[in-house]
Design a protein around this nucleic acid. Structure first.
Lengths: 235, 235
DNA sequence: TTCAGAAAACTGGTATACACTTTTTGCGGT
DNA sequence: ACCGCAAAAAGTGTATACCAGTTTTCTGAA
């Protein structure tokens, strides 16, 4: 995306460290599906491709390994992780629990500015969808959708919760699409659900907000249902 | 501890990698309180102390940073993280949610052998307590208690959940003791609670097991209560 | 084709060097 | 004594080279 040939090139204030660059680049390759499950991640190759030395590449790969996006085994070259249906189910179950909790907390803490931003983001997603149709809106949609959920996670004011959601429970888009219902059927529902979450947050109603978020997440991966029943056993 | 002068020296099967060694050593220093909040972590110093080069030390520090035990900022030397009361509350809240869920799942999945092991562990904790009294039993207790919770987490058969519990929600013992009730008051209650959790697991009752685990965790940090009420709003 | 053994490729780790920052030190002025 | 501030020292971030231990690929014979 950036036109740098050698190293940083950002004339902007804070130059990113080499690890950060490498980390984000590789992560992006995996999450967008440019690299698929099982693809080889060679340190030297990545080093020249990204324009840094092996050292920061190794750190980046280790981070991605810890996040579960890359599989590293001693003396073996790294490969892009594979996600079974069970993995996807597990991820969505945990996301439901944690993001539900986050949304509940956010309901009583979120600022007016963030509410505004959420509305704006949902608006953008909907107009983009109208303009671009079903398949071409995906790239932009993922980014906006990601920010939508990230704003809520941040509003929960629980730094560890936010970090876990951002770093341990990601699923590459390509994998998600493989297991989820087709775009055509989920898109409209997603917009409606986002609006409901937003309404619940505006109403400052934690229970509603949590329920709406849970419904949203479970609907994305139908196979993952049948567990929230357990959740209220704690009563 | 080991008498190695240069490198590995373990004649045992799988020699640990240098990063693993460094990671576990430093982590141990922090969790046991041998290093306290704010203490400096110098790469060179650790390198010679542990007997590896700077490279694996850096990887270890990065991991500990991701886990929240160490604070790293660019060009600044690392320091042992500080945990405020709010941090402790957050950690216990998240542990309650996640470990509660894990216990619920474990109830329907745990093997007889693991149940046996749990009983054994609890037995050990109680006899050690009888023999050693209140203060001297702590070192051993922490280890046994850790395994008790780890066995349950593993029995939930949710690898990401297990990893999160093991790596993102740890609190150094010294910090825990600062914020928790004094040992004298919590020890006996803990044993009773462990027994109840065990009973619920044996009864294969997910709701009971989850509730018992939640009660256990919240009782350890009284200040963290007042949030589970929200949890069943999802009904 | 299949398989074993040799060759190549790759990772994990060490050592060294150097740019860029932070941290400490020391000095001059008040 | 205390401040401010510049110079020196210490420390991290990255590059590079090199080697040992493994895995992966290649090659040639059965």
């Amino acid at each position: 995306m950036t036109n740098e040939t050698t190293r940083d090139g950002a004339k902007d204030g804070a130059t990113q460290s080499a690890v950060e660059t490498a980390y984000h680049r590789i992560r992006h390759l995996i999450l967008t599906g440019e690299m698929r499950s099982g693809d080889k991640l060679l340190e030297n190759q990545l080093a020249v491709a990204i324009g840094v030395s092996r050292t920061p590449i190794r750190e980046a790969l280790n981070r991605l390994n810890a996040e579960g996006l890359v599989v590293l085994e001693r003396y073996r070259r790294g490969i892009v992780a594979d996600f079974s249906l069970d993995d996807a189910i597990e991820i969505f179950r945990l996301r439901a629990i944690l993001e539900g909790h986050a949304t509940s907390r956010a309901a009583t803490r979120i600022s007016e500015a963030d509410l505004q931003r959420l509305q704006e983001l949902e608006q953008l997603m909907e107009t983009q969808f109208e303009e671009l149709g079903w398949n071409e809106h995906l790239e932009g949609f993922d980014k906006l959708n990601g920010e939508f959920h990230a704003v809520i996670a941040a509003a929960a004011e629980s730094p560890r919760l936010e970090k876990i959601l951002a770093s341990s429970l990601e699923l590459p888009a390509s994998i998600f699409n493989r297991y989820s219902e087709p775009v055509e059927v989920r898109t409209r529902r997603t917009h409606a659900q986002h609006r409901e979450i937003l309404a619940a947050l505006k109403a400052r109603n934690p229970e509603w907000a949590q329920a709406a978020m849970n419904a949203h997440l479970f609907s994305l991966l139908p196979t993952a249902s049948g567990s929230l029943e357990h959740e209220d056993g704690a009563k």
